[in-house]
Structures are given as C-alpha cells and as structure tokens.
Design a protein around this nucleic acid. Structure first.
Length: 660
RNA sequence: GCCGCGUUAACUCAGUUGGUCAGAGUGUCCGCCUUGUAAGCGGAAUGCCGUCGGUUCGAUUCCGACACGCGGCUCCA
C-alpha cells in the first residue's frame, strides 16, 4: 500500500504528514471529539472523506460557524425523516441551515398544528438515539430521477442543478454545482431507512446532535415565489451543547421581554386603534414626550449641520410622482389615488419630489450649493397587511428626511458629511456598534433601475469610497438599490446583539434630470446638480421602537417621559417634595410627585415598573437635613443627598444624555 | 397579498363538548391605614365574550365573511 502526503491545519500552524492511501479524514481527528467535519482546501467534507495526495485538511469543530451549519443541516434531515415517518405522504422541499437554526419545507395535505410538532420532535429524538449513519453516495441525474420519482420538488431541483443559487435561497444545500449526491441514513444493521438528495456534508451519525428544539411551523412559498404553492415550513434550532441551546432560548425570552409592542402598552406610550386602521399608530402623552425629544434633538442637529428646515404637504397631484419616476415603480405600495376636480391626488409616499420643487422654485447659483433641505416628512405607504409590525413597519410614518443638492464634485464630501453626521446622531442615542450595507443595482434586472451604466458606476463608487473611509465593516447588498440610485444604510447592533437598519444615504442622479433641476455655475452656464437623500433615523416610528427594545423600556433620563418620581415616606413630606419638584420643573426637568394614598413601598414598585430613572424619596431624616434620597432602577440607593446637589445630578444626567 | 393561529372587563388571562357561563388577578372608584426603599386592609363599579350574517327552539360556544392581532412567506423607496 502506498503512502500519500497531506497537510493538517491546526491552531498551531500547518503540519505535514504522510498517511496510507485510503486514510479517511476522521482518522486524523480521533483525539478530538469536537471535530465533526473536515475542511479540505476550501471545501467542507464529511469525516468519511477519503484523503488524496496533496490535501490540506483542517478539522471543523461543531461550535464554529461551519460546524453549526453542518449540525443544523443534519438536524433538518432528521426532521424530514421524522415527518415522512409520521406523514408518509409528505413531499420534501428544501431544508437548509439558517441563522440560529434550520428549517425544512414539506408539501402536506393538512398544515401542521403544534401537537404535530410535539410528535415530530419525539420521533426526531428516537432517530437521534438510533445513531443512524449519514452515508454519502454519488449518483447522476438519471439515476436520481428514478430514485426520487416520488419527490416532485427534488426532481425540480435536479433540473435546476448548477443554477441552484437562483433556484431558491437555501437550495444550494440540496444540490451543488458539481456532482449530485444522495445521503442515506443507515441503521445499525447497515440498512437504508431514509434518504435525501443532498450535497452535504453531514455529521457522521444522528447521535452527534447534542441539543435541538422545534420552534414553529408556518407556510412558505416554494422557491420563494408567491406565484408558487405554499409549503409547510417547520423551523427548529440546534446547538453544540444543551447549555448553548438554553442560552439561545434565553435570548429569545429576553427579546420577547423587550418587545416594543408590549412595552408600548405597559408604559402607556402608543397604541394602534382599530378604528384608525392597521399600521397607523397614535402616540400617548408619555410616548409623545419621547417622540418630541427625539424630534427636537434631530431638528436642532440638522440646523447645526447646515440644513434648512422646510415643510411640505401630505398629498399631491399624481403628476409629481410621474415626474419623479416613483409611480411606475412603486404604484403597488402607494395608496390608491383620490379623484376630485378631475384630478388624481396621491397620498405622499416620499418627500424628495416636493423638496425638488423647493429647489426649482427659483434660479439657483453654485454659490448656494450644497443646498440642504430637511423636514419631518409624513409619508403613507400601502404596506401589505401581512407585513405590518408594531412601530417598525407601519403605513404612516415620519421620515427625518433630508436632500442635499450639490455639484458632482461636491458629492463625495457631502456623502461623507451625511454619514458622519448620522453616526454622531446614533451614538448620542446610545447605539455604539455599527456596520454599513451598500445596496447596488442588480445588473441582470436593469429594467428595475433607471439611468446609464456610467452614472450608476460613478454613484456606486462614490458611496463605496466614503464607506471605506469610515473604517466600518461594509456588507454588499446587490440588487437592493432604489430605482434611482445606490444607497448606503447603517445597521446598528442593539443591547442584545440584534441588528437593525437605521438611516440611509442615497446618491441620486436621476431625479435632478427628471425635474430639470439646474444651477448656474461659475462659468455662467447651467448645470445639473446631483441630490443626496438621507434619513438619519430612517423613520421616527421605527427608531422609537428600536430604542425601546435597545433599552428594554428603561430610557436614559434625557429621553425618559418621567425623569423623576418623587415619593414621600408619609403624607407630611408631600409639600417638601413639591418644593424640590418645582425647582426641577423650572429647569425643564420632568418630575412627578406621587401623592396617591398607596404605601411608600407600593409607590416605589410603581415607579420601578414604569422604569423611571430617578426615584426621589424624602422622609423625616431627609427633611431635617434639607436632603432627598435617590433610588435607581437597579435598586441602587443614595440617601441624604442635599437638595441643590440632587437637582444638579438630575440636570447633569439629562444634559450628558447618559444612562443611569 | 398568501398560509396557519387567535380576538372574553382598561390590562393579563381562566371558562362554556350550544341551555343560571359572565369569572380571577391587576388597575379604577369609595372608605380605613400615614407608613424608610418592589404589592397594607375592606368594599364597589365595570363586559353586545371583535363586527356582521348564517345554522338552531336557543349561539360567547358551530359555520361564513369582514376587521384587528400574532408567527412565517413574499415585500420594505
């Protein structure tokens, strides 16, 4: 038997080794139980992979990104096997790993109910206990078609092989560009008990799945197109240990606890009256305080950054949106027109066309550029009923929308200015961790985008350059551009690591053309400006919701609807506290004195549940010393603080926008 | 928009296989209590059981449509 030379990559470097021909990858990692697959070159392989001369091999640990994907993909197989054992008529769709878990799609007569999921989960546990082997077998199109004659969706995938990425998101997990493979599940006797078309790789056996849980079922369109049939999708999660699973489930609980829809109700911030309609929020007094503070802040900041505050109406004749080019592209998401006096009027879905009219209301000189217009533009979009979600996806909202009109030469500096400005805004609201997303044109769908190749290339390059300068991570988003130009969006991570899309900067060379915008240049002739769209919050409503979730409702003092709740130990201390409260009110602080006839402990509980940052307590001891006592939301106490110092402390916390 | 599930007091949620089935806790209101860091005690009021239709002797309960919500899909200028 001849030997072959391979290289093993470890944390300590690369190690050359000579092994016998026929050696399989698992033999290299017998000492390491965490390794569940091998990376050979840049490809992931099963541990049963037979090494060939010149291979560079690295063990893939289950607790790595690739390792978890493999685990989850294998778990999806177990799910599918369990479903077909319980529901033999179920036809298989696709079953890829996803963030934090996996899913598998099935075509079944009757949708799954929660009790079905319990049954399926129990069967999955049995399959895992069976210690079935995932066995890879190379096949070809013709043989596979015969074998999978009863699986119409798999047959369809075979036909699409090679263009799997286009076939459906996740379909590449089933069929790769190369050879076609089937994985057989072998029981202890080596008999095939189940099989699935799949490119792999997989765990060696089902028993290597340490922890999983089925989460929910829902419908999903086959191959992601609403023109296709809806399949039943079962979602699950799987982890390298029971602890990791528990941790993930806790994260979900934490997310539920922070749900802004729930907090909005509990803290009496906003509601969605049925009588008004879906996706149309009303802000209650306390939510109104937060919203107003946000607006005051961002208005002031725009003025400081050289913007002029403007105002435009909520409806317009539809011709305006034809001029801008929006109507043909976004007719579906605009409310139907209302007709009167022989004219169609549209609810405003975007502000830019109106700002363009402000630009063109008189002649413009290059000396005025960049001309920066800003407003809280209230827009209405006909979002499909199924997508509306709390404050983050609504039908009526305000954008903190700005448009900078500038020369082509000024554009890069203006984009940079806007991006930096946006980041300072987000940081002031306590968000610290960002990355950028660059949304570009999909060259294969040019009919969805307006403008010449050259204009797109220039615009995209300007944005890419500025993004690079920020030093932030940049994630490409091909095809995500607006029809009129590419955009950069800022994604912010919240307190529990979730990312949210915040503001955007968009480079637009199309609307200036459509509106015939012009300025007179230094050479005395007319030129076309470019416009840079930008929203810092994106939408006030969405940003409000994100902030609520980020802070779990415990807003920093400058944003808190009630900054101080004054709590008397006994009724005789009420006037004393009113006196302090009055001094604070005079400084613009939001203070309430709780003079209800609840006991003082109950008042503390109430203030705590309302997540008020400062509880200001006073009893005989405090009155005697001319002091008050603070209690904070985390239970921390600070007793006997002299009144003047107490006022200063609250004032300083508000001014610095710090969290307490 | 599509699929599935849901809607009972201001809030959270029990309940009825169609016939004293309108319930609890919280909140609210009225008394009493006057209190040192997360719920003091007692009493009272509050519901077209989402809306509209149908089946039935009888519907909060069964069926349908609609509205609104939830989880996904699709979509997010």
């Amino acid at each position: 038997m001849s030997d072959i030379k391979i290289a093993i990559v470890t944390a300590n470097g690369t190690e050359e080794r000579t092994v016998e021909t026929g050696t399989r990858a698992w033999q290299l990692f017998v000492d390491n139980a965490d390794v569940i697959a091998a990376r050979v070159g840049d490809q992931l392989k099963d541990l049963s992979y037979e090494l060939v001369d010149g291979d560079t091999v690295e063990g893939v640990a289950m607790a790595s990104k690739d390792g978890r994907d493999i685990l989850r993909h294998s778990c999806a197989h177990v799910l599918a096997q369990a479903v077909q054992e319980i529901f033999p008529e179920a036809k298989l769709g696709i079953g890829p790993p996803i963030d934090n878990g996996f899913y598998y799609d099935f075509d079944v007569e009757t949708p799954f109910v929660p009790e079905d999921l319990e049954k399926i989960e129990a069967r999955m546990k049995k399959i895992i206990k069976d210690n079935q082997k995932f066995s890879r077998r190379v096949t070809n199109d013709d043989d596979a078609r015969v074998e999978l004659a009863d699986e119409p969706y798999k047959l369809e995938l075979i036909g699409l092989k090679g263009s799997a990425a286009e076939a459906a998101e996740g379909a590449s997990a089933e069929v790769g560009a190369g050879e076609l493979t089937i994985y057989d599940n072998l029981n202890r006797n080596g008999e095939t008990v189940w099989k699935d078309l799949c490119r792999g790789p997989h765990l060696p056996t089902t028993k290597r799945i340490p922890a999983f849980k089925l989460m929910r079922s829902a419908a999903a369109y086959w191959r992601g197109s609403e023109k296709n049939k809806q399949l039943q999708r079962v979602y699950g999660t799987a982890w390298e240990s029971k602890e990791a699973l528990e941790e993930y489930l806790h994260l979900l609980e934490e997310a539920e606890r922070r749900d802004h829809r729930k907090l909005g109700k509990e803290l009496d911030l906003f509601s969605f009256p049925d009588e008004i309609g879906s996706g149309l929020p009303v802000f209650h007094p306390k939510g109104g305080v937060i919203k107003r503070v946000m607006e005051d802040y961002v208005r002031q900041r725009h003025i400081e950054e050289g913007f002029s505050y403007v105002g435009t109406p909520h409806i317009t004749k539809d011709g305006l949106f034809h001029t801008s080019g929006h109507l043909p592209y976004y007719a579906d998401t605009m409310f139907p027109p209302m007709e009167f006096e022989g004219t169609n009027y549209q609810l405003k879905a975007m502000n830019c066309p109106m700002h363009n009219l402000i630009f063109s209301s008189r002649g413009r000189s290059y000396r005025e550029l960049p001309l920066r217009l800003f407003e809280f533009g209230h827009v209405y979009r006909y979002e499909k009923s199924g997508v509306i979600h709390g404050l983050t996806r609504v039908r009526g909202f305000a954008q903190d929308d700005s448009h900078s009109y500038c020369t082509k030469e000024q554009a890069p500096a203006e984009v940079k200015h806007l991006l930096n400005f946006m980041l300072t805004v987000l940081r002031d609201f306590g968000l610290q961790d960002f990355y950028l997303e660059l949304s570009t044109r999909d060259d294969s769908k040019k009919d969805k985008f307006v403008g010449s190749d050259e204009d797109w290339a220039v615009a995209t390059q300007v944005l890419a350059d500025v993004c690079a300068e920020t030093g932030l991570d940049l994630v490409p988003d091909p095809g995500g551009a607006a029809f009129y130009g590419p955009k950069v969006s800022v994604q912010a991570k919240d307190a529990i690591g979730r990312t949210w899309q915040m503001g955007t900067v968009q480079y637009d060379f199309n609307q200036p053309k459509g509106f015939g915008l012009e300025y007179v240049g230094p050479d005395g002739t007319k030129h076309q400006p470019v416009m840079i769209h930008s929203a810092k919050f994106g939408s006030i409503e969405r940003f409000f919701g994100v902030l609520l979730e980020h802070y779990a409702g415990a807003m920093p003092p400058w944003l808190a609807p009630v900054q101080v709740t004054a709590i008397p130990i006994a009724e005789r201390h009420v006037d004393y506290l009113y006196d302090v409260a009055k001094q604070m009110n005079a400084l613009g602080l939001r203070v309430e004195v709780d003079e209800s006839d609840d006991r003082m402990q109950k008042k503390i509980r109430n203030a705590q549940l309302q997540k008020v940052p400062f509880m200001m307590i006073a009893g005989d001891d405090d009155v005697e010393k001319g002091a008050v006592s603070f209690r904070y939301r985390d239970g921390r106490q600070d007793n006997g603080v002299p009144i003047a110092e107490a006022i200063e402390r609250v004032k300083a916390a508000v001014a610095s926008r710090e969290q307490v």
